[in-house]
Amino acid sequence: MTLISFFGNALTAYGPALAVFLLYVARNAQLVILLMTSAFFWLLSILFSSVFWYLIKPLQNVPVGTIFVAVTLQELFRFLFFKLMSKAEKGLNIIAKTPNSPLNRPANAFVTGLGFGIMSGLTLYLSQLAESAGPAILACNSCPGMDVFFVGALTTCLFIFLHSVWNMVAFDGWYRGQWLPFGFVMISHYAASYGTLLTPSSIEYGCAIALLIDFVILIVCTTLAVRPILVS
């Protein structure tokens, strides 16, 4: 039974992102390189977060502070990656399959955000996924009818695609010289991350509320991400 749970959680967490990678990203070597590069940038953000966590002792016992530092550094590295992308954009367009397509920017933003999300999902959930293959399941405090591993799988899946649309929204704003979209991305990232604290809490249906928060943010950010494409 736990083996079935393991594969079910794995496909729930990573299946949709894997499908997008195989059906879209893997067909284009340039997009694969962009995805891998952005994934490395996310790893750098977590490396610096770990350094802060290790050096600032009070953070080690305060999840709220740890989340604040981690999210802030992730968004900082999102901006740094955008600066790198903007420097390389001319060369990327030259070797693109459609050099003059107006969809190049949103496509690159989506793929690099997917790289952020996939690496985030692998780093934060993989160890928990491995535990789900153990001899038993672990009931969720806030939702006794669900186990922690499945809630984590759903959360991981949502965050992978949240990073994708966050990238699209932030990049579109930066390309237009506007910081308001990035401000919204940062606030929504804080909201989604802090919402995960409801899952292990004693609040009734806390995990459902946390997932609902993430899902609503995903819908809103997706609407903001595709709107410039539809307008153009």
Results as ranks from 00 to 15, higher is better:
Thr2His: 13
Ser5Pro: 01
Phe6Tyr: 07
Phe6Cys: 02
Phe6Trp: 04
Gly8Ala: 12
Asn9Met: 02
Asn9Ile: 05
Ala13Leu: 02
Tyr14Asn: 00
Tyr14Cys: 02
Gly15Val: 05
Ala19Val: 14
Val20Tyr: 14
Val20Ile: 15
Val25Gly: 01
Arg27Leu: 11
Asn28Phe: 03
Ala29Asp: 09
Gln30Met: 11
Leu31Ala: 02
Leu34Cys: 13
Ser38Asp: 03
Ala39Lys: 01
Ala39His: 00
Phe41Glu: 04
Trp42Tyr: 08
Ser45Phe: 02
Ile46Tyr: 14
Leu47His: 10
Phe48Asp: 03
Ser49Pro: 06
Ser50Asp: 05
Pro63Ser: 06
Val64Gln: 14
Gln74Gly: 11
Gln74Ile: 08
Glu75Ala: 08
Glu75Val: 03
Phe77Ile: 03
Phe77Lys: 04
Lys87Glu: 03
Lys97Ser: 11
Thr98Ile: 07
Asn104Thr: 06
Asn108Ser: 15
Ala109Asp: 06
Ala109Ile: 09
Gly115Ser: 04
Gly115Leu: 06
Ile118Ser: 06
Ile118Val: 13
Met119Leu: 10
Ser120Gly: 15
Gly121Arg: 01
Tyr125Gly: 11
Ser127Glu: 15
Glu131Tyr: 11
Cys140Leu: 13
Cys143Thr: 15
Phe150Asn: 04
Val151Ile: 15
Ala153Glu: 08
Leu154Ile: 11
Leu154Arg: 02
Leu154Asp: 02
Thr156Tyr: 05
Cys157Gln: 11
Leu162Asn: 12
Ser164Gly: 10
Met168Phe: 06
Val169Ser: 03
Trp174His: 09
Arg176Leu: 11
Arg176Gly: 10
Gly177Ala: 05
Gly177Pro: 00
Trp179Gly: 10
Leu180Ala: 14
Leu180Asn: 05
Leu180Tyr: 12
Gly183Ile: 03
Phe184Lys: 09
Met186Ile: 12
Ile187Thr: 12
Ser188Gln: 02
Ser188Leu: 11
His189Met: 05
His189Pro: 01
Tyr190Val: 04
Ala191Met: 12
Gly195Phe: 00
Gly195Val: 01
Thr196Lys: 02
Leu198Asp: 01
Thr199Tyr: 09
Ser201Ala: 07
Ser202Phe: 13
Ser202Trp: 07
Ile203Ser: 05
Glu204Pro: 08
Gly206Lys: 04
Ile209Asn: 09
Ala210Pro: 01
Ile213Thr: 02
Phe215Ala: 15
Phe215Trp: 09
Ile217Gly: 04
Val220Lys: 04
Thr223Tyr: 12
Leu224Ile: 02
Val226Pro: 02
Pro228Lys: 07
Val231Ser: 10
Ser232Cys: 09
